[in-house]
Design a protein around this nucleic acid. Structure first.
Lengths: 137, 137
DNA sequence: TGAAAAATCTGTAATAATTACAAATTTGCA
DNA sequence: TGCAAATTTGTAATTATTACAGATTTTTCA
C-alpha cells in the first residue's frame, strides 16, 4: 500500500482515490499549498476532482491531526503534510512559506506565567519578514 | 491630549475622531475584538461610523505597527492594542482569546537552524486548547 | 475669514474564500 | 448481482474583506 494510504489509515481515515491523491500531493510538495493550488495541480490527472472535495478532505485531514492547517497567510489557509513540531516563516515580499527549525529545542517546553488551568493542545509559531532571496534585493 | 491620540501620533498617524475612538476601544478592551465587535460597540455612540472605516483604520494601524492583527481565529481577523511581546491562546470550546506570558523570557531569542539569510521582523506564537472555564466541564 | 485643495469617511457594489446542501457516483458487503 | 452506506460533485449561499466613487471634514494659505 502506498505511504499516503497507510498514513490515512493511521489516522482512521478511509483511503479513497481522492483522499490518497491529496495526501500524496501534500507529502510530495513542501510548498504549504492552498486549496486552489492543490485543486489545480491534481485536476490535470483527475479531471473530475471537485474543489469542494479538496476543501472537505483537507478539513477532514486537519481535524484528524493528519496534516496541519496554517493561518500564516492573511487571506487563505495553507496546508502542511509535515506534522512534526516546527515553525513557519512567510516572506512578506514573495509570499513563499518556509519551514523553520528552532535551534533551541526547548521551545516546545516553554511554560506560561498565567498558564494555570489551561490545557494546551496545539502550538504554532509564525514568523514573517524577508527570505534570503528577497533580502538580497 | 488623550492617551489614544498620543499613541497615534507616535506612529505618525493623524488622530481623527474615528481613529481615536477605535484606538481607544482597543486600549480599553483586552478581548482581541473583531471588526464586527468594534463597529457594533462604537456605533452606539457614533451612529454614522461605517464598517469600511473600521476596516481601513485597523489596517492602517496594523501596518504602522500601532496594533497587532491576529490570525489565530480561522475565519476572521482579531485585533490587539497591546503590541508588547506576548503570545495568544484561543479556546477551541468558547472561542475566547487570552494573552499568554511565556515564563521563559528567552523565547524571543530563539535562533533557527536554517535561519541564515532570513530577516525576521514579526513573530507570533499561537496556542490552542481549553481555557480554565471550559477545561472544568 | 473663506475659498480651494487634501485628507478622511461613508455606503454600496464587487471579490474571494469557504460552507451548505442535494443529487450523482462509488464502494463495501450480503 | 443488488442494496445500503459512504463519498464525491456542482451549484448556490454565506461571510469576511476590499474597491471605489461620492460626500464630508480638515487643512492650507491668500
Amino acid at each position: 500500500m502506498s505511504k499516503s494510504a497507510e498514513r490515512l489509515k493511521e489516522y482512521g481515515i478511509k483511503p479513497s482515490v481522492q483522499r490518497v491523491a491529496i495526501m500524496d500531493y501534500l507529502l510530495n510538495h513542501k510548498t504549504h499549498p492552498t486549496v486552489e493550488m492543490i485543486h489545480q495541480d491534481l485536476s490535470e490527472d483527475m479531471a473530475t476532482l471537485s474543489k469542494t472535495t479538496v476543501y472537505n478532505t483537507l478539513k477532514l485531514f486537519a481535524e484528524a491531526g493528519a496534516i496541519l492547517a496554517l493561518n500564516i497567510d492573511e487571506n487563505t489557509t495553507r496546508y502542511d503534510g509535515d506534522t512534526s513540531h516546527h515553525a513557519h516563516f512567510r516572506c512578506v515580499c514573495c509570499g513563499d512559506i518556509y519551514d523553520m527549525t528552532p535551534s533551541n529545542h526547548d521551545w516546545d517546553k516553554i511554560g506560561f506565567e498565567n498558564g494555570e488551568g489551561f490545557k494546551i493542545t496545539e502550538e504554532e509559531l509564525y514568523l514573517k519578514g524577508l527570505c534570503p532571496k528577497c533580502n538580497k534585493k
